[in-house]
Design a protein around this nucleic acid. Structure first.
Lengths: 159, 159
DNA sequence: TCCCAAAGGTTGATGCGTCAACCAGACTAC
DNA sequence: GTAGTCTGGTTGACGCATCAACCTTTGGGA
């Protein structure tokens, strides 16, 4: 609760819009560059990066999902699309007949390596370099606080 | 420019992920509540709110686009879907044969009024109440700074 | 006048994300 | 061991967002 009532005041409204705009434009720019540089999307990149760092360069879907904090079906759809393009392969898990393990392919490795440097540079240039150290701290704490609050208030909606 | 090299360090990586997670989960929760309370999505709400506040409760597509900072086709698709559900209507503009004006319907007004209170309360509860005043300031400045930087670096990509 | 570029919008294709429904393998209780 | 449930994963439908291509009207000039 706190706050001063139900409606957002002008200041809050402005912050809220700026937050949205920042996210949308940042996401757009990063996607465009990633697409141009390596022919992959941000979701592709996240999956590939997680797999590339994993031991054996493969993960079970469950682990991948936990790592990325994605929904079940979101990952399933994403992996299907990526498999069609040859970035990953799926095979069965020996220990558990239900499970599937996702492995990065050579093509996937090439893509993610091509993308990594430029992507990181882009994130730094557009995001971190625009922030003062104090703002960075605030961002960190605020992000954590909002996530924590979401976890408390909307527990069903957290994967 | 700032920073310390191309790769993101651990701290930065963590902040970046927290930012993404915060946005995704916030967006998900807000959409779910909006859908449940008023049967509309966040994009629906943004359009309806802009129209409801406009003089004559109608705007030309161009103005709506500028207000929301959306891409041309994004708005066109959105309006088409909303028109099918009876939330808005499109009619021709007398002054300019190319233009279209979008008007909110009674059903649209009802929806947006139903949604407004609960939505604002939700944004306050999940976002603003989680932030200290200092964090709010930082968020505001940081958002503005990132947007400004985007405008400078990627001018072509800004609508 | 005629041509041509720019502006306002629309459309189709494709990828992304959610939801609800479903299926199959694994666990638990009895 | 068999019934019921839980868990891991997939699928189909649908809304959302981007891109590229397109159409029409407008507004200048030559």
């Amino acid at each position: 609760m706190g706050g001063s009532g139900k409606r957002l005041d002008g200041r809050e409204y402005q912050v809220w819009r700026a937050f949205h705009r920042m996210h949308d434009q940042l996401s757009l720019a990063l996607n465009q560059h990633l697409q141009r540089d390596a022919g992959i999307s941000e979701p592709d990149f996240q999956v590939l990066a997680a797999l590339a760092e994993a031991p054996g360069q493969a993960l079970r879907s469950r682990e991948l999902r936990e790592d990325l904090q994605w929904e079940k079906s979101r990952l399933a759809h994403q992996i299907r699309r990526m498999e069609q393009r040859g970035l990953v392969v799926r095979d069965e898990c020996l220990e558990d007949g239900r499970a599937a393990t996702v492995r990065i392919t050579d093509a996937g490795l090439t893509s993610v390596r091509t993308a990594a440097q430029a992507h990181a540079a882009m994130v730094r240039e557009l995001f971190f370099d625009a922030l003062t150290p104090a703002q960075l701290d605030a961002f960190d704490e605020a992000g954590t606080a909002v996530i924590e609050r979401l976890r408390q208030r909307c527990p069903a909606e957290a994967p």
